[in-house]
Design a protein around this nucleic acid. Structure first.
Lengths: 216, 216, 216, 216
DNA sequence: AATGAATGAGCTTTCATTCAT
DNA sequence: CATGAATGAAAGCTCATTCAT
């Protein structure tokens, strides 16, 4: 008796329950990202997913659970591939690599900050996001990747033996977070500010000397 | 001259119109801070203020204007007393002073970030907040105070002549922002992480040497 | 396929979407006719229709659209069967036929005038009513039917060859309009005044002689 | 302790209670005529009158009573001077005089119809208007003036001895009413339609002949 | 008597959720 | 299981009315 999924959804998911769930999550994410949390009504999400409104409730208990899941799902999707920094140890300059990371990370965070910020407006949603992040272990410090890279560089002798890699990593990550936040607050469609000078300062501290830059 | 304010409000404001306005603003702030923007309905604000719903509209044109005003009002209230850092130049150690600033600023931002972050979910509210902040000149970079302090220290010879004060200031402020954001995201009612190590790193860069710390 | 209509509405409409739309329109009409436009709140209409308030918005975009549709719908329903006058040409007396028309038309207009008059107090509603009437071609002059009848009588030689049929028709229709207006203004639930003498006057003009009347 | 009237109102009324009442009535009329009944809030009326909102309640029991009084007041003011038709008996042609009357009356009614029509939207307001009209004897048939004129013409021999003056008068007045109504319904900013042909028809009936017209 | 701020019922509209089909 | 109409609570806002001054 079960009416089948709409053709478009069927072909996109193969009818697999878990795939439909994800299909809905990405639809919800698109709505939030495009139109803001306030516009992410169940109706809008259902329409974006190509499903009837009631169908959402076969996959999620309620709107808060669905939106929270969509946020966390997107965060995982986008966060995973940032860990390629450590592999660059020994290549290029310290400053170049840290700037590269900052660019990458800021792009990612620029997408994430609005999502989390939106969650801040709704106590229940924020609680649910926190719960789910804890569940999937997303509370680990994102600075760890940077730290691992710096430790590798220290092992290679490119930074001082007594350099505080953890602190340096933490600084870089903080700046990325802040850039994303600021850029959203001020509504710069323009571009992210450069963090070259701050990174040079950190590098100088790590090396105990003027950083050597390839360009300029 | 008119129907009186409720006793509780009357005694809190003396009946002064401007005081009532502020009474409403602080009530609105309390609701947003306690329950989130989504819960800050006009009804909830009126109840928190001890007033009838319609009364709000004698003081504010609409909900967005009221909430935006509450956010900016709170930001001004809490922001004003942060500018005392420059005066500490030459006293104590660099690290101590920067940590002191970081503590102060993080406390303040811990309160502000949720407010602004919440505004991100409401396009109209964010626009109004921006408008009002521009009106009262609040968009100046908070890093400027830190930079001024560092420049003063450089003039006193306590940091290297070629130190990049602006970059250092920017790093410190970014960390404060990030701490506030992270702390709200993770729901640590507990305590802020220490930034001692990151500040030491910055100081080492500014001085070109191991920072001399009084304690530990 | 969905939560069912309330039993009473279900049985009245058979659940057909178009029938429900009409059910709502007639409910709205009843409220306006009975209690006046000012009382025709969405709540009152929903209650009259036996539906929840929100359900109205599944059928109409907003209150103005709903009320305007109700007015125009009622006008069409009641107006359609008035066009049978031309067929009476040659039967009975001129005066009888015109009186018959006046009775019919006044009954109809007695119901319509309050509706349109009410719309006069609401700019947006009036505009919408006009728009919808134009859409369904209801702005044609109702005097045309009378004129056609008189022209037919002239062809039959029952009125003077040079008689101004259009003017006569226009007079009769004006009287009907006025009767309806006056009757509503004065609140005569009782009966409409007779227009026998005015019609005799018109007939005398058309025939150039004393009208011959069967009765009295 | 009585605070004085505002200077502008004081000078306009001399402070006389009855004059202030009328001052308010005309203000209310202006608002209804200009902006429609829906816009005639007590606030708008008070502002138009140059008084505080509460002051209205010293002169009228409530909004409905005030608006009803304003409508009836305006109706009396504008209706009184229409009675000059009888004096024209024997001068010019019948058709000219009746057309002159129709022009006059339509101008007046063009102003009145919106007022009464507005009242139709509010049961309570309509009831109050009716009550007040009855009180001041405004329910007399406005056709009487026209009838008196026609009787005078009959006495002068300018119309047939057996002409039905009452019916003719009634027709003319009905047309005026209808013109005003139609013109409002169709939103003609343009102009009233000519009633020359209808009046000629009536005149032909009264005289038993082709009406002799001066012009054309 | 004039004032005008306070009131709160009531308005239109939205939307998360349910459930008979 | 998918559907989507029905629901009704709750939102932002207006405004007639009151009343201490």
């Amino acid at each position: 008796m079960s009416r089948p999924l709409p053709a478009r959804v069927q072909s996109a998911t193969g009818g697999d329950t878990e795939a439909v769930r994800e299909h809905i999550l990405t639809a919800a994410y698109r709505v939030v990202a495009r139109d803001g949390l306030a516009a992410a009504s169940t109706r809008a999400i259902a329409e974006e997913a190509g499903l009837a409104g009631g169908t959402l409730y076969n996959y999620f208990g309620n709107r808060v659970g669905l939106v929270a899941a969509a946020i966390v799902h997107r965060a995982r999707t986008i966060t995973d591939p940032v860990a390629d920094l450590p592999a660059r140890a020994g290549i290029g300059t310290l400053a170049e690599n840290l700037e590269y990371f900052a660019d990458q990370a800021s792009t990612v965070l620029g997408e994430l900050v609005p999502l989390f910020a939106a969650a801040f407006s709704d106590t229940a949603l924020l609680a649910e996001v926190r719960r789910r992040m804890a569940e999937v272990g997303m509370l680990s410090d994102p600075a760890t990747a940077v730290e691992q890279y710096l430790v590798a560089e220290r092992r290679l002798g490119r930074i001082a033996a007594d350099a505080d890699c953890r602190a340096a990593a933490s600084i870089v990550v903080s700046m990325c977070h802040d850039d994303a936040f600021q850029s959203y607050l001020h509504g710069d469609g323009a571009g992210r500010r450069s963090r070259r000078r701050e990174i040079e300062l950190v590098v100088r501290s790590l090396t105990g000397s003027q950083p050597s830059r390839s360009g300029k």
